[in-house]
Amino acid sequence: MEVRTIKVFTTVDNINLHTQVVDMSMTYGQQFGPTYLDGADVTKIKPHNSHEGKTFYVLPNDDTLRVEAFEYYHTTDPSFLGRYMSALNHTKKWKYPQVNGLTSIKWADNNCYLATALLTLQQIELKFNPPALQDAYYRARAGEAANFCALILAYCNKTVGELGDVRETMSYLFQHANLDSCKRVLNVVCKTCGQQQTTLKGVEAVMYMGTLSYEQFKKGVQIPCTCGKQATKYLVQQESPFVMMSAPPAQYELKHGTFTCASEYTGNYQCGHYKHITSKETLYCIDGALLTKSSEYKGPITDVFYKENSYTTTIK
C-alpha cells in the first residue's frame, strides 16, 4: 500500500517557510505537534488534498525554529505562539472599519479597549522592536488589523473576551517599542525636605499616572512627601515624541487643539466601556464603527496623549 502524501510549508514567522512532505494517514499533531492554519487549530486533523502548498504555523520545537521565533517575536515564552494563534482565530472574524481616516474595530468580545489602543497607536510616533509587531502594525494602518490585535493580546497575556485596560495595554506595548531616546527629568520640591531631581528613561519617561493635564504637570502637581507634608512635583525636561497622561476616570474637559487623542471610560472596574476622542479640525468621538463630532467635550476621561518633541522648564 502506497503512502499518500502532500507537500506543505511549516513556519513560526510566515517569513521562513520549511518544506514538509506530510503523510495523509496521520494527523498534523502526530507529525508536527500543535499546528495552526489561519489561526485555526488543526492539530487533530489529517492532511487533505486542499492543504497542498498551504502554510501551517507550528510551535518552535527545534533550534532553527526557536531562533526564527525569537528573532521575529522577541520572546522565548513557549506558550506565546499558541496564544497568538488562538487569538487570531477570533480577531480574523472582527470587522476593521476605516473611521475618520483611522483603522478602528467594530465592537465584539469586549474589544473596546483594543480599538482605543489601536486608534491611539496610529496617532503617536512609535516604532516597535519585534519585527512581528512592526509588520502587523503597518498592515493594521492599511486596514488589516487582525494579526496586530492578536499579537497585542498575546504580548499582554490576554484572551479574547476578557476586559482590558488601555493604560495597561499601552504599557505592555511600550515595553516592546523603541523608547531608548526618551528621557524625563522631574523635580520634587518640599518646604521641609528641599528639592530632589529624578531622571527617568524609556517607558517611565512617557507615562504618568495622577493627572490628565500635561500643562498642569509642567506647572506642578501636589504629591505627598515622605515627611508627610505636601510637596510639588513638576516637569523639568521632556525628550520624547509623545507623552501619555493618565488618571482614574473623572469628568474632564478636553479643549480642541490642546491634545492629540484621549480615552474615555464609562462604567466601573468590573464592567465598563471605552471610547476614543481625537482632536482634528474639530473633536471626534470614535466608538467602534461609530463616529460623532463636537466642538467641545466633557466626560469621564482616563488617558490623554500629547505630541511632544523637546521641553525644558522655565521655572527657576
Rank of each mutant, 00 (worst) to 15 (best):
V160P: 07
Y269H: 15
I45Y: 12
V42I: 12
T10G: 06
R167C: 01
L291N: 13
Q230K: 12
L291G: 09
G164A: 03
P47A: 11
L173G: 03
G82Y: 08
I277D: 00
I286P: 00
Y96H: 05
T314V: 11
E253G: 08
V99P: 06
Q30M: 10
S240C: 05
S279T: 08
F32W: 08
G39L: 08
V166G: 02
Q216W: 03
Y113L: 01
E204R: 14
Q20C: 11
K7L: 12
N49A: 13
T103I: 10
E125R: 07
K275R: 15
N111P: 05
V42S: 08
V236Q: 07
P300G: 06
L126E: 02
A231E: 00
C285S: 12
K307P: 14
T313V: 12
I6C: 12
P241C: 06
T10I: 10
K95A: 13
A289L: 07
N178Y: 06
F242G: 04
Y137G: 02
D62A: 08
T91S: 05
M26R: 11
T313S: 14
V160Q: 04
T312R: 15
L133I: 04
T258N: 10
A140R: 01
V160D: 01
F242V: 01
K275G: 02
V206I: 10
Y234K: 08
T91V: 08
E264L: 06
L118A: 03
I124V: 08
H74L: 15
P131S: 03
T258L: 07
P130M: 03
N187V: 12
G143C: 03
K201C: 10
L151W: 02
K127M: 10
D41G: 09
T116I: 04
Y96G: 05
C261A: 05
V185C: 04
Q20V: 14
N89E: 15
K44H: 12
P60S: 07
S295W: 10
N110Y: 00
Y252A: 09
Q20G: 09
K255G: 07
D62Q: 08
Y297L: 04
L102N: 04
P78N: 10
K93R: 13
V21R: 13
C193N: 06
T260G: 00
L65V: 07
L290G: 12
Y72I: 06
L119E: 02
L17N: 09
M26W: 12
F174D: 03
T211N: 09
A154M: 03
R167A: 05
N61D: 10
V189M: 10
